[in-house]
Amino acid sequence: MPTERVLLQAEGFGVDYDSTPILADIALSVHAGEVVALIGASGSGKSALLRALLGLSPATAQTRGLLRFAQADGGLRERRDITPLRGATIGFVPQDPQTALSAHRTVAQHLDEVLATHAPGSTRPMRAEQAAALLTSVGLTGELLPRYPHALSGGQGQRVLVALALAGNPAILLADEPTSALDPRATHELLALLQAQARVQRRGVLIVSHDLSATAHAADRVAVLAGGRLVEIGATAAVLSQPQHPLTAALMAACPPLTPPRPARLAEAPRPAPCARVARACAFAATCGRAQSVCAETPPAWRTIAGREVACHWPLGAA
């Protein structure tokens, strides 16, 4: 994978809302052809990261550090103004089609305006053809074109959202909880669709989710976000089979197993301190069962253990 082209790179990236840090020291890259799952509970800062990557942070937000995006010539360039990249370099797949589509516009109207935006010279018949092709590429048919959002099933709506994200042929797909409104079968199909966009179309796919079990398995790499910082990043197989950060382990132990034996109690993950307070300590210094005095005194440095990066003073593998 590291030999693949980097499409998106964050370095020392952080976001303050009203001068309060809510995201700090984010270092993350997405390569062509891979799916990365960014796992974070509510309040972890994942929404702030999503908005920052789209250049749609609220007006009171300030960002620090670097964001680099793929260039047409194959290089990476730092971008301050992300506006022209939206829909073109970075395609966004929102959470719930019932709220993310405009209820008074048909699927065809939604597709047409995005196509027109990203190919200004095109004619309406050209775009109609492209719209039908886009629906086909996400496993739908042109029958859905005249439909309004309320007449789409959950799975169809979510695929329409993917088609819209693909209309500008972006290098990167950024998906926000793309399966939370779906049943297991539609979830599985949608994740397969996103995976195919990475494998076949060589896009970079970043899936942001609160649910480790729902999305991580479809990803090549997993990054765990807590308290506004990343705590563990690595290949999915390594992270899920042998988590090193206590939080990752707790998140996995929180998911009940399908078959016996079952634990009498499921683990409930420790809560991180808010990002603003973690510049001088580990976010879990007060809540982690493994914490020692050093955890409250020094923020943990990144270290490499068993093929992944982990930010913890007492990683599980080293205990």
Binding site: L56, P84, R86, G87, P94, S102, A103
Partner: peptide, 20 residues
């Protein structure tokens, strides 16, 4: 969320306002 999504698709501010 519909407006966040419309802006994320790269639509112009004017279009988002008048059409969405």
């Amino acid at each position: 969320p519909a407006i966040l999504a419309a802006r994320a698709r790269g639509l112009s501010a004017r279009r988002v306002l008048l059409v969405h």
